[in-house]
């Protein structure tokens, strides 16, 4: 997984406590600097007073000033945010500030380059368009927003996500949809390894992951619920999926695969069956959405054969232990 920003963040944190260093960063102080506290103008042209800042975000000095500089609302009501040069924390802070303004229903973020945790703390329904490459943990713990990425995504997309939708016009890295428990993720191309690991469902919370291309190893490992659909669109004729250990430890949920898979690629806990009519309905519904999102030819996919992988048991390790019935 990516090593990029975490250590740099920490190093920065230490460096920046040095006051000599801070004077070189005058461009930063204007938006979070506590001196510029009053009379800022926010993106919608209203003057943001202390009351506005305290309303929901609270205690955040200078928020409006940076919003004014970074965020621009066009006539159709879409807010455009420039992420150029912002750290993850700064960008998310700014997005949260914008999202807390209920007027705004759509935010378009330009020049995204590796910023993590986008969508994590935006707890409302909101359309977020990302241009560039968002960093790891896109939509981690997310509850509500709909994110469209025009580019590739990195690792841990939708980590422990509760609700909302993530659409990636490109590929996604490792550990997509880990422990996801609601909402949907659509990836146009391939995903890395460990996709949908320990995805789970309860009641009407049923997560969905649709992969346009193929996946690497350990797809659906420990899967406990939800639906994964792998379309294999990028595969050459006659070429099968290459992932191994698919569904190792799987004990819930279902994986639908278009394209061939050999028995040796499957985990021991998985069996292959033909989808029934209800499964077909699930598949077609998701595929239709996929085709609408990415402009793919629905008929081509709809007429293909899907395999259904599902767990042999809900208790894969039930006989793993020495039962105590024999006493002792």
């Amino acid at each position: 997984m990516s090593l990029r920003t975490s250590w740099i963040d920490r190093t920065d944190r230490i460096d920046r406590t040095n006051s000599a260093d801070r004077t070189d960063r005058t461009d930063r102080t204007d938006w979070t600097g506590r001196t510029g506290w009053t009379g800022r103008t926010d993106c919608s042209g209203r003057t943001a007073g202390a009351g506005d800042s305290h309303a929901e975000g609270g205690r955040q000095g200078g928020r409006g000033a940076e919003r004014a500089r970074r965020a621009f609302m066009n006539e159709s009501g879409t807010l455009t945010v420039d992420a150029q040069g912002l750290s993850s924390r700064e960008l998310n802070y700014l997005l949260r500030a914008c999202a807390l303004d209920r007027v705004c229903g759509e935010i378009s973020v330009k020049n995204v380059a590796g910023q993590r945790y986008i969508g994590t703390n935006l707890r409302r329904s909101l359309n977020l368009e990302i241009y560039g490459t968002p960093g790891s943990d896109l939509g981690a713990f997310m509850d509500g927003p709909r994110i469209t990425v025009f580019g590739n995504a990195q690792d841990c997309v939708g980590n422990t996500m509760t609700s909302g939708e993530i659409v990636v016009h490109g590929r996604a890295g490792d550990v997509v949809a880990m422990s996801m428990r609601g909402g949907a993720i659509f990836v146009r191309d391939d995903v890395g390894s460990r996709c949908a690991i320990h995805m789970k469902e309860y009641g009407d919370r049923k997560p969905l992951v649709v992969i346009g291309g193929t996946a690497h190893d350990f797809l659906g490992e420990y899967m406990a619920g939800g639906t994964v659909i792998m379309l294999g669109l990028g595969l050459a004729p006659g070429e099968g999926h290459r992932a191994c250990f698919i569904g190792t430890g799987m004990h819930g949920g279902r994986i639908f695969v278009r394209g061939s898979i050999e028995a040796h690629q499957l985990g021991r806990e998985v069996e292959v069956v033909d989808p029934d009519s209800r499964d077909q309905e699930t598949i077609m519904c998701a595929v239709e959405r996929f085709c609408t999102l990415f402009g793919t030819d629905f008929a081509e996919i709809a007429n293909s054969r899907f395999l259904k992988l599902h767990p042999r048991s809900h208790r894969p390790y039930g006989r793993f232990y020495a039962a105590r019935d024999s006493g002792g």
């Binding site: 943990d137 428990r181 320990h198 309860y202 406990a224 819930g252």
Partner: peptide, 17 residues
């Protein structure tokens, strides 16, 4: 736990992220 009743609740050995 937000999982279906009656299924094993498996905590994998590592956190896979």
């Amino acid at each position: 736990r937000m999982i279906p009743p009656g299924t094993d609740a498996l905590s994998p050995a590592p956190q896979h992220d």
